[in-house]
Simulated scan of single mutants.
Amino acid sequence: MIVSSLIISGFGITKFGLHLNMPHLIGISSTMIFLLSPMFYLYVKALTMDNFILSAKMYLHFTPFFLLILYMLPFYLQDSETKLVIYFSESFSFEHRIIILIQTFHAFIYMYFTRKIVKQHAEKIKNSMSSTERINLIWIKTSINFFTVIICSVALSLGLIFFGIKIQSIYSELIPAAISVAIVSLGFIGLRQPIVFPPEQEISQVKKYEKSTLTDEQAYEYLEKLRALMKNEKPYLNSDLTLQKLAEHLTISQHHLSQIINDKMNQNFFDFVNLYRVEEAKFLFTSPRGKLLTVLAVCEEAGFNSKSSFNSAFKKHTGKTPTQFKQETLREN
Rank of each mutant, 00 (worst) to 15 (best):
M1F: 01
I2E: 12
I2L: 14
V3L: 14
V3P: 03
S5F: 10
L6A: 05
L6R: 00
S9L: 14
F11L: 07
K15T: 12
F16Q: 14
H19T: 03
P23E: 01
P23G: 04
H24T: 12
I26E: 11
G27L: 02
S30I: 03
T31P: 00
M32R: 03
L35K: 04
Y41K: 08
L47R: 07
L47S: 01
M49Y: 04
D50P: 06
D50E: 11
L54S: 02
Y59W: 14
H61N: 06
T63A: 08
P64A: 00
L67G: 08
Y71D: 10
L77P: 05
Q78M: 15
S80E: 08
H96I: 03
R97P: 13
R97H: 09
F108G: 01
I109W: 09
M111K: 02
Y112G: 01
T114H: 00
R115P: 01
K116N: 07
K116W: 11
I117H: 03
V118F: 01
K119M: 07
H121P: 04
H121I: 02
A122K: 08
K126C: 05
N127P: 01
S128P: 00
T132N: 06
E133K: 05
R134P: 00
N136S: 04
W139E: 09
I140H: 00
T142R: 14
N145R: 12
F147Q: 12
V149L: 15
I150G: 04
I151L: 09
C152I: 11
L156T: 10
S157V: 04
F162M: 10
F163N: 11
I165R: 11
Q168A: 09
S172W: 10
P176T: 14
A177C: 05
A178N: 05
S180Q: 08
V181K: 09
V181R: 04
A182I: 10
I183V: 14
V184A: 09
V184W: 01
L186W: 13
Q193N: 06
V196K: 11
V196G: 12
E200C: 04
I203A: 03
T215C: 00
Q218N: 11
E221A: 05
K225F: 15
K225H: 13
A228E: 06
L229P: 10
N232G: 02
N232R: 11
K234H: 07
D240T: 09
Q244I: 13
Q244R: 15
K245E: 03
L246I: 02
T251S: 12
Q254C: 15
N262H: 06
F270P: 03
D271L: 13
L275K: 15
L275F: 02
A281V: 07
T286P: 00
K291S: 15
L293C: 06
T294L: 04
V295E: 06
L296Q: 11
A297I: 08
A297N: 09
E300L: 08
F304C: 05
S306Q: 08
K307F: 15
K315T: 12
K320N: 05
T323L: 14
T323K: 13
R331I: 14
E332H: 04
